[in-house]
Design a binder for these strands. Sequence first.
RNA 1: GUGAGCGUAGCUCAACCGGUUAGAGCACUGGACUGUGGCUCCAGGGGUUGAGGGUUCAAGUCCCUUCGCUCACCCCA
Length: 422
Amino acid sequence: MAVQSIKGFKDLLPSETERWGQIEREARRLFSLYGYEEIRTPILEFTEVFSRSIGEVTDIVEKEMYTFPDRDGRSVTMRPEGTAGVVRACIEHALPSKSPAHKLFYMGPMFRHERPQAGRLRQFHQIGVEVLGPSGPSVDVEVIALLADILDSLEVRDGSLLLNSIGCPVCRPDYLASLRAFLEERRDRFCENCRRRIAANTLRVLDCKVPACREATADAPAFSQHLCPACDAHFDAVRRGLTGLGIDFVPAPRLVRGLDYYTRTTFEWVTDRLGAQNAVAAGGRYDGLARALGGPDLPGSGFALGVERLVSLCAGPLPPPQPLAFFALLGEEAAGLADPVVRRMRREGIRVERDLLGGSLKSQLRRADKAGASLVVIIGDEEIKRGAAVVRDMNEKTQTESSLSDLGEIIARRLRPSSSGQ
RNA sequence: GUGAGCGUAGCUCAACCGGUUAGAGCACUGGACUGUGGCUCCAGGGGUUGAGGGUUCAAGUCCCUUCGCUCACCCCA
């Protein structure tokens, strides 16, 4: 059998890359409007960057990372998410000392060795933002508004924003203790997984899908009732901020995050149109991350958006391509005459295709039609004798003849009938 | 990592209870129209039926192994 791509690694063919391009352009446009700057960090990092930030006991670190010894023996890992590398870079380049606030975005591939399924790949792509420095609630609100605007600009509107607060190092221990006590009391009502989680990943029990577990936790203590005054005020301000912007959200007391570094605000944009993987974007505040990486206190807030998942939700129209002129050429001599014209037109910003396959005029016209050409320039022996070219309008089915020297200007004028101001 | 389903042409799918030369639509190429696209009609190229083994007079079809894909669990973007 011929060689194939690796399981969970997908090719993006031209039929799909247009949508990707649209998404990336829209995102970049909004990032620029919001004042976010791009950062590009390496795909490969020392393993500690992830194990120390994401959390040693998470699934990602325990069994999903592409980790291997580099040739010099040091353990390296292909990034499973974007935040850790961005924060590492900020610490390494002492960004906090250069400016008290950094608003960054990134886009690119992430890698997790999971079993592929709908909406889940081993190489997948995220677009994300990180705001490093400011710790106030308005940062969380801005980040969520930015996410909402990206989705809105792509006409992805049916879905909901889940919002929660998971406290901070001040209030979380108390809450965890009372939650754990609550769970322990009804330990025998939980699935095997959850029994293990009670000690290992207490918050996760709240998020279990097993109905019996859901029932057992129906009246579990909610974090929102146990927040310390500072976290409570922060959460309240985020909610008021979102309401003020007209951004709907649903309080989700069970929404927890799998990654250790989250504090306070946590949110997720979910839809029911994606199969089992319902999260399109997720994020929150991670005030403890920079310290975990050995850096200074550096509050952060951001989100990551799954591009593949977003693509499958996008049904809106793609931007129409620039009008196209197509050269149908019969014979070597015609090609020799046409090529300089074609090149000149391209350098002037006109979209021009030149037939490369040859064959009958009929087959070249067929290709021109399929390529979506609005004008076709035909040059054959008869035209060469007259030093001319036939210009066929594919929509009107009309033809005119013009001299080779005027060709460029005539095509340019006809392809941009009204927007000559450009 | 666990479980289930599915692998037939480039794509989407047929092929009865196992039966003789594996078909169709779309796509592609050519012709009708010798230099004029889309529509129509005609023709043509394309297959190790995922791979390997077994049962049988006979396997796309049944059995085993293996590879791949898909979906779900888990987890997450």
